[in-house]
Structure formats: C-alpha cells, structure tokens
C-alpha cells in the first residue's frame, strides 16, 4: 500500500468524516494545539536560552532542564494529541502540503537533537552547568531554537496554499 492510500483509508473513516464536518471541531482543536504549543515550545525556548548563556544565568542549566522538563512534556503531549486529531480529521488536506512534511521531519530532527544532546554533552553537565556551556551544548541550543522556529512557522503556513500540490 502506498502512503497515499493509507491517507485515503483514514480519510474515509466515518469518525474522520464526522470530525471534518463538525462545525467546531477544527477551531477548538486548533486553538488547543496552538496554546499548548506556545506553553511547551515557550519553555523549550527558555531552556535553550539558558543553554546559550543569554538568560537565567544565575540558575544552573541542570536545574532549568530538570525542573522544566515535566512541564514541557505535559505541553508536548497535549500539543501532539490535538495535532493528531487535526490530522485525523483531514488527512488529505495535509497529504499534498510540502510544508507539512518538512514540519514532521523537523519534529523528528528536533527530538533526535534533544536526545543526542542528553546522551552525550549533557553527561558532563556537572562540569559546566554553572559556567559557560561548551560549544557542543551551544550548537544543540541554536539547532533547537532554529528547528522549533521553523516547526511553528511551517505549522501556521499549512493554513495557506503555499507549496501545495493537491
């Protein structure tokens, strides 16, 4: 089965059609998606700014990371679930949008970036968490900021016809 037929298969589900035709499902889900995103990504940005050494310099990075992490995860789960439902209601709307696919790829890359940072550079955090972080940490921070900015932008731009093929 091709990717396209998977999307068409979901598109034909009665529950998908019902959500698509519901007057308020889209505005309600989109509003939840946006606000939970602002909370989640906002806390990720605050953490990245500390990683770059431009904000919250009086607080050790390890504390910023550990104490914001649970809140970031709650926001991420809500954003993900609302996003999944938005997709479920209109899979064919997103299938032909290049920006949607780039956004999905960037979400995966942002996750890989965070995971790699955690498994490598972060292991030595005790050596630098109150001082200036090493270059590798700053690179991870800049990458994270850049990728989340693009994810937010491309997510918003899927509302338009930019780079839409069908």
């Amino acid at each position: 089965m091709s990717l396209r037929s998977w999307f068409e298969w979901v598109d034909a589900f009665p529950s998908s059609i019902a959500m698509r035709e519901h007057l308020y499902a889209f505005p309600v889900l989109l509003t939840i998606h946006l606000i939970s995103l602002a909370m989640f990504a906002g806390l990720v940005v605050m953490m990245d700014l500390r990683l770059l050494g431009v904000a919250y310099r009086g607080t050790p990075f390890s504390e910023v990371q550990a104490r914001l992490f649970p809140w970031q995860m709650v926001g991420m789960v809500v954003t993900f679930l609302a996003g999944l439902l938005l997709f479920y209601a209109q899979p064919m709307r997103y299938f032909g949008k290049v920006l949607y696919w780039i956004k999905m790829a960037l979400i995966v890359l942002a996750g890989v970036n965070a995971l790699l940072f955690h498994l490598t550079t972060y292991r030595s955090v005790a050596k630098w968490h109150t001082a200036s972080p090493p270059l590798r940490a700053k690179v991870a921070g800049v990458l994270s900021l850049a990728m989340w900015a693009c994810i937010v932008a491309f997510g918003r731009l899927t509302a338009y016809d930019w780079l839409t093929f069908e």
Binding site: L37, A38, G42, L43, M46, E63, W148, A153
Partner: peptide
C-alpha cells in the same frame, strides 16, 4: 502572523517559567 505566533511562544515561555515557580513548582531552588 507567523511572527506574531513566534512572539507568543516567547511570551508564554517567559510567563510560565515564573507562574509555575509561583505555584511552588519548577525552579524551586531559585
């Protein structure tokens, strides 16, 4: 509109980090 949302993300981050701390959670050692 995209720039408005990016500013919203930073706004919510800078608000929540403090509000969560006010709730007695988050960066409680500070």
């Amino acid at each position: 509109n995209v720039m408005h949302i990016m500013a919203l993300v930073i706004l919510f981050g800078s608000l929540l980090i403090v509000d969560v701390r006010l709730l007695g959670r988050g960066m409680t050692q500070q």
